[in-house]
Design a protein around this nucleic acid. Sequence first.
DNA 1: ACAGAAACTTGCGTGCACGCAATTTTGCGT
DNA 2: ACGCAAAATTGCGTGCACGCAAGTTTCTGT
Lengths: 222, 222
Amino acid sequence: MNDASGLRERKKRATREALQSAALRLALAQGPENVRVEEIAEAAGVSPRTYNNYFSSREQAIVAAVAADRAAQLAAAVTGRPAGSGLADTVIDAVVASCTDPGDHPRGALLMIATTPALRACYVDAVTSIEDTLAGAVTARHPGIDPLTAQVLAAAVGAATRIALRRWLHAATVPASMPGFVVPAGSLPDGIRTALTPLAPALDAAALDAAPDEPGPMSPAR
Amino acid sequence: MNDASGLRERKKRATREALQSAALRLALAQGPENVRVEEIAEAAGVSPRTYNNYFSSREQAIVAAVAADRAAQLAAAVTGRPAGSGLADTVIDAVVASCTDPGDHPRGALLMIATTPALRACYVDAVTSIEDTLAGAVTARHPGIDPLTAQVLAAAVGAATRIALRRWLHAATVPASMPGFVVPAGSLPDGIRTALTPLAPALDAAALDAAPDEPGPMSPAR
DNA sequence: ACAGAAACTTGCGTGCACGCAATTTTGCGT
DNA sequence: ACGCAAAATTGCGTGCACGCAAGTTTCTGT
């Protein structure tokens, strides 16, 4: 009973989720700048000090729920794409899909995170853990691939996504001064796709170097 | 006289460098944890508040000098490699070289940054700006390349380097079982090279898509 | 040369991250 | 059921990042 079944673990998870949801709710309601740690802690029924035992920054709690949601979504999108297509198409489509399809909460949430610098920075950090998830999904699909290679490719994908995100909202914030000079919006999915395209050769090459995905039902270990 | 010739700009640069060198010197002398912002500010002859007008964290000043050094070194290594070879080889060799060849100060500096978590995190952030430098160098060498592509590839290289660095010192972090011998398994340059290898196809493909630096076979649109 | 503007510095106040040690809660063996 | 050990919570103190509103230095036009 070391894992999730213990009372202890359940309580920890409960407070963590309470903190996350409270933080997100308050941030959406009052604006992210007008939320004190004390408020979040009080809403979750713990002391402010305990908050920092769960999250190491004020923004982290706000972002955590959305980020976790995204990770799960990405993994599902990658593993859900059964077989046959190249790694590049698989990964790119999965990333685009995970950004198109909103998870549970985020409607204004994503926009708030994107437009608030502090939250954006925190979200970028959280993306790092998503990269690990991606790497895991990739090795699951192509067992013969080198783990290091998978990790590098996943990190590259994350970096490209980050750039696409940055460009997208940099273009979106401009138009206050110049009426119509720079078209404010390409769609974010398109931007991500074009940002990811340069990495396609590396993805396909890696998949080709290793064993291509198996025609048969044998499930390799690990 | 808007640029570097003004008195104002010269003074700003002077204080910035004073803060950087003081921070690095104190960190090396006393250990990074035992340096107060107040000390650095006093050593540079400014108020503690002014320190935060130049650097937004305590670690940033320590890392800044080394990071800037690295950026210059990398750019030189990329542009210095005359022509003819593939983009992948060029970039990989340049990155490895910039990590092998120590700049001015860093002897223990790099090791200190690598082993102190807070400094490492800050250095990783600084690497982001190095990526921009790399992207610039790449577009200088291959003018026909899409700027976005260059940026993505540079970010991918940065991400791979980050992973190599992390793996290297994760292997080096031996618990207290063996005191005295903390020899890292494998050299860092080798680790970087292997981490960068999976990206080679993407780099070469991008260079081929654009105009190669010498008149070669024309490449079809992708 | 001089007055006004723009930029930089500084002190102050606030909220936050985190180490430390005391206290409470939970888990487990007997 | 009981008690001890491990773990989590909490309060406190310290150092830090940053907005704000003076005060000071540099730049610019006339």
